[in-house]
């Protein structure tokens, strides 16, 4: 293509052609961040469920803080390689997940500082809060890319954090099985959606 002038009709045709060139399907590897967070969450949920069964301390629940590890890995990876083109949808989804991560960090800070003031740091709330934030992020993503199966699955996943909150408000003791329940919710809101996204990307 050269910098030559052309007719009005050719101009309109060129604009239409170039705009159609920017249409793209789901980028390859779109589901990888979901899988990265999802499998980390699954591993932590199983570990925090099993360890107390063998006499381990409840302090192993602090393993949930490792959920921030994929964020560091993905951030380091993003710094090294950037996509050739960023669509408005890509940007919107990326911003959504940035907000999800920020909300989790903010919640953790609030819980820790309010705990320091009262003398007891209660991190129990982090699991249902994290689930709600993640489910919201996955829902926004699925609605944006119009992926109904992920939307439905994530709506079901929402039940788990609500049930956990009900138990907490009722004053129930924090049971190891809650960690497994959280893992199940992450399975439906991160792991399976991640595989669906990668499958769709391969197909497109």
């Amino acid at each position: 293509m050269e910098a030559k002038n052309f007719t009005s009709k050719e101009s309109l045709e060129l604009i239409a052609h170039m705009i159609s060139e920017t249409k793209k399907g789901i980028a390859a590897g779109s589901g990888n961040p979901f899988l990265c967070y999802g499998y980390t969450a699954l591993a932590i949920s199983v570990a925090t469920f099993l360890i107390p069964q063998f006499g381990g301390s409840w302090k192993w629940n602090l393993l949930w803080l490792m959920m921030f590890l994929p964020a560091v890995i993905l951030w380091a990876k993003d710094r090294k390689e950037k996509p050739e083109v960023v669509s408005y949808i890509d940007k919107m989804i990326s911003n959504t997940w940035t907000v999800v991560l920020e909300l989790m960090i903010l919640s953790l800070i609030v819980i820790v500082f309010s705990g320091l003031a009262s003398g007891v740091i209660n991190l129990q709330l982090m699991l249902p809060l994290a689930l709600i934030f993640v489910c919201t992020g996955t829902l926004i993503t699925s609605l944006t890319i119009n992926e109904g199966s992920i939307t439905g699955m994530t709506c079901i996943s929402f039940a788990m954090p609500v049930l956990l909150l009900i138990s907490m408000v009722s004053g129930d003791e924090y049971l190891p099985i809650w960690n497994l329940a959280g893992g199940l919710s992450f399975l439906f809101s991160l792991v399976i959606p991640g595989h669906i996204l990668n499958y769709k990307a391969r197909k497109s």
């Binding site: 293509m1 050269e2 910098a3 030559k4 002038n5 052309f6 050719e10 101009s11 060129l14 604009i15 052609h17 170039m18 705009i19 060139e21 920017t22 249409k23 950037k82 996509p83 050739e84 083109v85 960023v86 669509s87 408005y88 890509d90 940007k91």
Partner: peptide, 27 residues
């Protein structure tokens, strides 16, 4: 009103940002 400049502008209209190599491939 120049073929290449209009192509660049039309490509960038639909995306948030694009790499030089990508624009080169498309145009």
């Amino acid at each position: 009103h120049s073929q290449l400049r209009l192509a660049i502008m039309s490509l960038l209209l639909s995306v948030e940002e694009a790499d030089f190599v990508w624009i080169k491939e498309k145009t």
